[in-house]
């Protein structure tokens, strides 16, 4: 911990501080850093920023780039560089904070991070909705939620395999988290109950969902326009593939596929999502990105990422890490 003034709702920590430690310290003042990347709270804030890792709470609080106020890093020449600051609003100088977020350690080693905090909500409750059995169709439900003034902290749809791993039976399930003062949570619950039959579940559902990829062979994230998921969610969820656990965040337009290692697959097929992604064409064709979050080491060269191979990215890499010593190859340089 470098500095923490609860009244400012900002926190500055060294890069190696775990999310668990941040949670403990801020919790003492009824505050929190609403970042819950997939994985566990034993991960560090530096790694969370470096990989731009987000989880279900991104629905309500944004991505790491949105909560980051400033950072310090050491570039490939061993120079200490500071970006941003410790106040909640800042446009001084070019935005190296955003640049470093999601750069996977290729531009610098993040040594210090300043983030924005929030007060812990007075009420924070989670509800599960079993999908597909006597419920309105998934698409209809999602459209109704999208059109409503509901502002959930988190909203995730799980396929049967994912629901089963969390102990909800093997039915596709929608998880929704409402937080805030008591009246706002009650009002949202009341409105939501008119759309679907809900059942309150433990808050520990979220850490369990985040740990789903613990021993997975591969984790693939697919990102596209949120509405594209509205129309295909039902058919994706209907595909009962017990080996692939799927969670969809319809607000962010994110689907995560967590594949267990069954030991007898060819490397190339592990990188294959294994389900048909039949997004309706909207005339623009492009726009779906497949991001590999986790792959067996031997598979990595097969899919050979090239996400930072454009001239601007290569120029930045060369300027910040002229000797190519920082996580070489990870972004396909």
């Amino acid at each position: 911990m470098v500095s923490y003034v609860p009244g400012d709702l900002t926190l500055t920590v060294r890069g190696g501080t775990t999310l668990a430690e941040i949670g403990r310290v801020t919790g003492e003042h009824d505050q929190w850093l609403p970042l819950d990347p997939f994985g566990s709270d034993e991960g560090t804030i530096g790694a969370t920023i470096a990989t731009a890792s987000a989880g279900p709470l991104a629905t309500g609080f944004g991505l790491p780039r949105d909560l980051l106020l400033g950072l310090e890093f050491v570039n490939g020449r061993g120079e200490i560089v500071r970006a941003g600051g410790k106040v909640v609003k800042n446009v001084a100088g070019f935005d190296l904070s955003r640049l470093l977020t999601g750069s996977w350690g290729t531009l610098g080693v993040i040594t210090e991070v300043t983030v924005r905090l929030y007060s812990r909500p007075k009420v924070d409750r989670t509800f599960a909705v079993p999908l597909g059995r006597g419920q309105k169709s998934t698409t209809e439900l999602l459209r109704a939620v999208a059109a409503s003034p509901l502002a959930p902290f988190a909203l995730e749809i799980l396929n049967g395999a994912a629901a089963l791993s969390l102990g909800f039976g093997d039915n596709p399930t929608l998880l929704v988290r409402f937080g805030g003062n008591a009246p706002v949570v009650d009002a949202q619950l009341k409105a939501f109950s008119q759309l679907a039959r809900t059942e309150e579940v433990e808050q520990s559902t979220w850490p369990a969902l985040r740990k789903m990829d613990g021993d997975a062979a591969s984790v693939i994230r697919i990102s596209t326009l949120p509405t594209r998921f509205l129309t295909v969610a039902s058919s994706i969820l209907a595909d009962t593939e017990p080996r692939i656990m799927i969670s969809i965040n319809p607000r962010r337009g994110i689907m995560r596929l967590v594949t267990q290692d069954d030991g007898d697959r060819e490397p190339a097929s592990i990188a294959d999502p294994g389900i048909s992604l039949d997004f309706p064409s909207d005339g623009e064709g492009a726009g779906t990105s497949v991001i590999f979050e986790k792959l067996p080491a031997e598979v990595w060269p097969v899919v050979s990422p090239s996400v930072a191979s454009d001239p601007l990215s290569r120029g930045i890499k060369k300027a910040y890490d002229p000797h190519n010593i920082l996580n070489p190859g990870i972004l396909g340089h």
């Binding site: 977020t101 990102s223 326009l225 962010r252 994110i254 990105s289 990215s313 930045i316």
Partner: peptide
């Protein structure tokens, strides 16, 4: 369309 991968050049 979705979330971007690679350096946040927009940022």
């Amino acid at each position: 369309f979705g979330e971007h991968d690679g350096y946040d050049l927009r940022g």
